[in-house]
C-alpha cells in the first residue's frame, strides 16, 4: 500500500482582488517507509498540501488518501494514525516539556511509557530540561520537543512541515539523523523544506513552484538530469561580473550562488568565455567546472 496518494488536488484561496491557486492539480504518491521531501520556496503550496493530508483543510478538487484512508471520509481514522508537526512551533509555551509530552500522549489515548522507545533517542536530550517551560527552550530544542510530541502516539506516517526552518546547522543535522532512525523503524515521513541542501537527505523529492510540481524523482536522478556542464565563475568584482556574464551571448543561465556565479552555456566552450571576460576587463577571474546541486536543478527548472 502507498503511504500517501494525491490525485489532481486543487486548492484555491479567494481574496477580494484575486484568486490564488495554492495547489494546482497536484498528483503524487509516497511509498511506505520512505522519506519524501517537498522542496520549494515559500508560498509554493507545501503547507496547503500538508493541511489537506492531515485533514485540516478540504481540497476544492481531487482526492487524497493516507494509508488507503480517504482524507474526507475517513478523517477520524487518519487523525489517529498520523503525526503532524506544523511549521510554526505550536505547543503550550506555558507548560513544561514533560507536561506537553504527557498532554499529547493523553489526547491520543496513550502514555509516555508505552511509546518511550520510539522517542527515547530524541527525548533523552530533552530530559535534563523536562521541568522547563516549552516557551523557554532554544529553537532546536523546541523542534525536538515538537517532534517528540508528534511521535508519542506511534504514528504510522509523519508529516513535518518545515521542521528545520530557523534552526541552527548543527541541530538541523541532528534532526535529519533522527529522521533516518525513524525511517528505519518503518515510519513513512513526508517533510517539506525550503533548504535545497536538505533535499539530498530525502529518498525522493518533489520540486514545487507556484502550486505545481515541477519534478519528482530521486535526488541523484534530478541532479543527473541536469544535462549540462555547470561552471562556477569568480572574479574580484562580482557585481559587474554577473552583468557581464548575463550579457554574454552564449550564456544560457547565470545565477549568483554564494561566493561564485553559477553558469550554463549554449555553446559549451570555457575558453571563449575566458577570452570574453578578459576583453571586458576582469582580472584574476577563475572558471571551474562543478557538479550541479539540487538548487541548480531547481533554478534551471524554474526558468
Amino acid at each position: 500500500m502507498k503511504a500517501v496518494v494525491l490525485e489532481n488536488i486543487v486548492k484555491t484561496y479567494t481574496t477580494k482582488k484575486s484568486i490564488i491557486k495554492a495547489v494546482d492539480d497536484v498528483s503524487f504518491s509516497v511509498e511506505e517507509g520512505e522519506i519524501f521531501g517537498l522542496i520549494g520556496p515559500d508560498g509554493s503550496g507545501k503547507t496547503s498540501i500538508f493541511r489537506i493530508l492531515t485533514t485540516l483543510l478540504l481540497a476544492d478538487k481531487g482526492n487524497a488518501r493516507v494509508l488507503g484512508y480517504d482524507v474526507v471520509k475517513d478523517w477520524k481514522v487518519i487523525r489517529s494514525i498520523i503525526g503532524y508537526m506544523p511549521g510554526r512551533f505550536s505547543l503550550y509555551q506555558d507548560l513544561t516539556v514533560e507536561e506537553n509530552l504527557e498532554f499529547f500522549a493523553t489526547i491520543f489515548n496513550t502514555t509516555i511509557q508505552e511509546n518511550y522507545n520510539l522517542i527515547s533517542d530524541i527525548y533523552k536530550q530533552l530530559e535534563p530540561f523536562k521541568t522547563r517551560r516549552a516557551g523557554k527552550l532554544s529553537g532546536g530544542m523546541k523542534q525536538k520537543l515538537a517532534l517528540s510530541c508528534a511521535l508519542i502516539h506511534k504514528p504510522k506516517i509523519l508529516f513535518l512541515d518545515e521542521p528545520t526552518t530557523g534552526v541552527d546547522p548543527v541541530s538541523r543535522k541532528e534532526f535529519w539523523e533522527m529522521l533516518k532512525r525513524l525511517k528505519a523503524q518503518g515510519i513513512s515521513i513526508i517533510v517539506s523544506t525550503p533548504y535545497m541542501d536538505e533535499a539530498k537527505l530525502c529518498d525522493r523529492i518533489a520540486l514545487m513552484q507556484n502550486g505545481k510540481i515541477m519534478k519528482i524523482d530521486l535526488p541523484q536522478n534530478i541532479v543527473n538530469e541536469f544535462g549540462k556542464n555547470l561552471y562556477a565563475v569568480h572574479s574580484e568584482n562580482m557585481f559587474t561580473l554577473l552583468n557581464d556574464l548575463r550579457a554574454y551571448p552564449q550564456t544560457e543561465n547565470c545565477f549568483a550562488f554564494g561566493e561564485n556565479h553559477h553558469l550554463t552555456m549554449k555553446e559549451d566552450d570555457p575558453n571563449k568565455l575566458n577570452d570574453y571576460l578578459k576583453s571586458t576587463g576582469h582580472n584574476n577571474f577563475t572558471i571551474s567546472k562543478i557538479e550541479p546541486g539540487i538548487e541548480d536543478c531547481f533554478m534551471q527548472l524554474m526558468k
Binding site: 492531515t54 485533514t55 485540516l56 487523525r79 506544523p86 505550536s90 505547543l91 510530541c149
Partner: peptide
C-alpha cells in the same frame, strides 16, 4: 494564535 488548536484538531479528541 499559538497554533496549538491545530495540534488538538489533528488529534482524535
Amino acid at each position: 494564535e499559538a497554533g496549538t488548536i491545530e495540534q488538538l484538531n489533528v488529534s482524535p479528541i
